[in-house]
Design a protein around this nucleic acid. Structure first.
Lengths: 247, 247
DNA sequence: CCTTGAATATCGGTG
DNA sequence: CACCGATGTTCAAGG
């Protein structure tokens, strides 16, 4: 791990050239102006930010607030450095899509280079897949007597999450949302149901939107279209099952 | 700006307690294990990462690769520190939604505290709003003789982007997508058209999906529902207009 | 490679 | 506060 405090622009360039090799991670903190051009175009006026150039070439720029980076480049971005006696400049280039970002520093507070070792992969649970799996395993959580026959069935209108029959043998289509269900989700479910109705020449098909909660407008839409809502509350049980071995 | 290299766990705690006050920004680089519980649940095994605690309380954790943080907390998160002679521990708590994240460090490479000043706001152009504005200004880019009468009109099914009449006086509904148009977008447009048809007792209403490109499945869907597609090519002109004063 | 949909999405605007 | 849609969304999975 190497670092330098308050280098001059040429000092910063020297540090970058000397230490910043492939597979190294560089952090620069300083006062910069940022121009981006690619899928869109942006300009960010002077201000003090943190810039991280990661070991895979990804570049992220953080202002002192907010979770999101204000500017960035994805993995496999090429970076080069230049300077004169007033400015230290970082240029980044990416292909497919073509994008470039230029950072012009008029002051650098600190730079550091290191190489981090991290082979761990995060394990997350409680997401839509987990909920779908839970319903597959034990369809009674939706409705007594429900049988699931297919998962992620392809239709002309897109993919549906679950397909099966209720205890009376009526076909049931289920769309799962792990958070607040949206209006497009209702339209999507309605299209699924219509497609199946048309295809099977079958008028009696149920569509169920399964989510922890829905807004009033979504509730009304479902009613208008003869669709149903099943609240699938907080998935504590699912999370605990998957995480038992982790914690 | 203060920093410390390779502190012991208790040294790290001392540094954090001494320097980390509100409105300060803290960076910790070290080997840690991370547990998160909130909307979902996650576990990340030991590895070397960069942790940034921002001046608004946001916390982001970056592995040495990828653009996205592996773990995080949003703005207004509370953080506290503790340690024993083996471990340095960072606990973070957030409300609405309730979430907590615990970082356990078994080694710290570096810590630094600073306070960054950045009042700049990024200016981005080339996005959907710009495209909608462009069409408002000069509807001929969509079709000769088109008149736009309303923007972001509220309907029962949601919001539509643009509403107007073609040169023959036929009502036209336009949905704008700045990138690849999705299947839900088609459903949405279809619902808009149906709503207006029903409300106005008017059978002849056109729906146009406006996007730089569409997939085959979306093209087929549009045809099935009697909707239209208008390619709105790369928005260089728009970008240039808005950015002329910036660059 | 392209297409599709999820995300601890995040974030801003509006009622 | 809840709701809604855009994002330079990013990312992984499947065809």
């Amino acid at each position: 791990m190497h670092h330098i405090i308050s280098p001059s622009p040429l000092g910063a360039l020297d540090f970058a050239k000397h230490h910043c090799k492939p597979k190294k991670l560089l952090i620069v903190i300083g006062d910069c102006l940022i121009e981006y051009r690619g899928r869109a175009k942006s300009l960010l006026d002077w201000g003090e930010r943190i810039v991280i150039i990661k070991q895979d070439g990804a570049v992220i720029v953080h202002q002192p607030v907010m979770r999101e980076p204000v500017n960035w480049q994805p993995s496999n971005t090429k970076t080069d450095f230049s300077a004169d006696d007033k400015k230290f400049i970082v240029n980044t280039y990416h292909k497919h899509p073509n994008e470039k970002m230029k950072l012009t520093f008029r002051n650098v507070q600190m730079m550091m280079v290191t190489s981090l070792k991290d082979n761990a992969r995060i394990v997350v649970s409680g997401m839509e897949t987990d909920i779908v799996e839970k319903i597959m395993e034990k369809p009674d959580v939706i409705e007594e007597g429900l049988r699931i026959t297919k998962r992620e069935k392809q239709t002309k209108s897109g993919m549906i999450d679950l397909y099966g029959y209720d205890k009376k043998g009526v076909p049931v289509i289920i769309e799962v949302k792990r958070s607040l269900a949206t209006i497009p989700a209702v339209h999507q479910l309605r299209m699924y149901v219509n497609d199946i109705k048309r295809k099977n020449m079958e008028a009696n098909i149920r569509g169920i939107l399964c989510a922890p909660r829905i807004s009033k407008i979504v509730k009304n839409l479902l009613e208008d279209y003869g669709l149903e809502y099943k609240e699938f509350g907080w998935v504590k049980e699912i999370v605990d099952k998957k995480q038992r071995k982790l914690f």
